[in-house]
Design a protein around this nucleic acid. Structure first.
Lengths: 224, 224
DNA sequence: GCGACACTTCGAGCATGGTCGAAACATTGC
DNA sequence: GCAATGTTTCGACCATGCTCGAAGTGTCGC
C-alpha cells in the first residue's frame, strides 16, 4: 500500500464533470460567482454550491466575498498548471475531436492560462527569452538572467518587486506540449499585452487574439 | 456548458484510491504485473484487473504481454507529468507528511524494483558497467558488450540463457532520476546479491540493506 | 422594517461504480 | 495430458456521492 500525498482526493475533485467544467471556466483567470459557475457547469444552483464547497475544502479554490456576491477563483498557478496538464492528457488520449474549428485554432496560437499567456506565442516567447539569456532555465526551474531586470524595466515591468509567488515558473502548455512562462512575470507580461491593446480577449473564451499591429509589436519586443 | 477535451474522464481515472496507488507505483518507470499492482493498491486481484482495464481504456497505460505475465506501464511521459502535477497540488494542499524516516533514506540507497536492484547503488553499478564496456548503451537501449559473457560467467551468471524477457533493460530510477539495470541480467544480479548474503531485504519494504562486508564485496565486483 | 436577490443547507431519490468470491481462461512446466 | 500459476470475467452486493426541490440564511435597496 502506498502512502504520501493524497493524489486520489485531488484528482477525484477534478473528476466530476460539473466540477471539471467549473475549473475549466475558471482557467480564464477571472473569478466567477456561484450562479455563473452553475450555468457553466450545466447544473442547478444547489448542486453547484455543493461542488464549490467541496473544491474549497480541497484547497483548489479561493473565495472573495463582496456583499452578497461571492467570487470563486482558482487557488493559484499550481492548480492552473495541474488542470493544464490533465487537459493535455485528455486531448492526447481522447477520441479525435471533430476537426478543430476557428476558435480552437485561435486557442492554440494564444490563450489565457489563469493569469498568464499560453499557446504557441507564449512558448515561442519563453524560448526566445532563454535564447537571449534574459531568463535561465535549469531543468524544470526558470530563473532571472543577469540582464532580466534592465530588460523588463524597459517595458515597465519591475521584476524585483517582492512577491510571495515566484517570479518565474514553468507551466506545461497542453497544445504545444512544451513549457511557457507563468509566475508574476508571466502575469505582468500578459497585463502589458492587454494594456497596450496588442491583443484582446475573445468573448466567452480563453482565446487571446492579436491585432496585426499588436502582433508586430509583440514580436518586436519578445521574439526579435 | 463547456466543451473540449474530457478532463473529467481522465481525472476520475486517477481519482480512485486504488488506481492512484497503481499509477504512483508505476511512476518508477518500471512496468509491473497485475499481481504486483494489486498488492501496491491494497485490493484483490479481480478488483485490480478491473481498474487496469479502465486505465487501459482511458489510454493511461500500455500493456506488454510476455507469456503469462502481463506488464503494465505508464503510457508516456505526458501521463507521468500529469501525475506529477497532481501530486504537487496534493502535497501543497494536503497535510504535510511526516518527515522522511530512515526507511526512506535506505530506499534511496538501494531497493528492489520488481525483480532487480534500484537506487543509488544500482545507478552507480550500471554507470560502471558501461564505463568498463561490459555493457553498451545506445540512447535508451542497453546491450551486452564483448566481454559481458565472460565477465558475468565469472560470477555464475549465464547471460546467454534464453529468455523471453530482454536480458538488459533500462529502468528509470525515481530517487536518482537516472537509469538502472533491469531485465533478466538485472534480476540475476539481484539474485546473486541476496544469495551471497551481501544484503538482505527489509521486512515489508522495498529497501535493500547491505551488510558492511557485503557492501565491500559488491563494490569490489561491480564498482571497481 | 420589508421585499428582492444571492447563495447555502437539508432531505430524499437514485445511479454509478467499487468491491470481492467463484469460476473461467491462458500459459508454462512436468 | 495434468497440475500450477497468473490473469480476466461474471454476478451480486453495497456504499458513495451526484442530483434537485424546498426551505433557510445572509445582504442589499428602498
Amino acid at each position: 500500500m502506498r502512502e504520501g500525498p493524497d493524489i486520489a482526493r485531488i484528482a477525484s475533485l477534478v473528476g466530476d464533470p460539473a466540477r471539471a467544467n467549473m475549473l475549466s471556466a475558471l482557467m480564464g483567470g477571472t473569478a466567477l460567482t456561484a450562479s455563473e459557475l452553475a450555468l457553466e457547469a450545466g447544473v442547478s444552483l444547489p448542486t453547484a454550491s455543493s461542488h464549490l464547497s467541496k473544491l474549497m475544502e480541497g484547497g483548489l479554490l479561493t473565495l472573495a466575498s463582496q456583499g452578497r456576491h461571492r467570487y470563486y477563483g482558482l487557488a493559484g498557478p499550481q492548480v492552473a498548471g495541474m488542470i493544464e496538464a490533465i487537459t493535455g492528457v485528455a486531448e492526447a488520449v481522447g477520441p479525435k475531436r471533430v476537426r478543430p474549428g476557428p476558435r480552437d485554432a485561435a486557442m492554440r496560437v494564444a490563450r489565457v492560462c489563469y493569469d498568464h499567456l499560453a499557446g504557441e506565442q507564449a512558448v515561442a516567447m519563453l524560448d526566445r527569452l532563454v535564447d537571449r539569456n534574459v531568463l535561465v532555465r535549469d531543468d524544470k526551474e526558470i530563473r532571472l538572467g543577469p540582464s532580466a531586470a534592465s530588460h523588463f524595466a524597459a517595458l515597465g515591468i519591475d521584476v524585483e518587486a517582492k512577491a510571495r509567488r515566484p517570479v518565474c515558473r514553468a507551466c506545461l502548455d497542453w497544445s504545444v506540449r512544451r513549457s511557457h512562462l507563468a509566475g508574476t512575470l508571466g502575469a505582468a507580461i500578459l497585463d502589458k499585452i492587454l494594456a497596450e491593446k496588442w491583443a484582446r480577449r475573445e468573448k466567452d473564451s480563453r482565446a487571446v487574439v492579436f491585432s496585426p499591429t499588436g502582433k508586430q509589436a509583440f514580436e518586436k519586443v519578445f521574439l526579435a
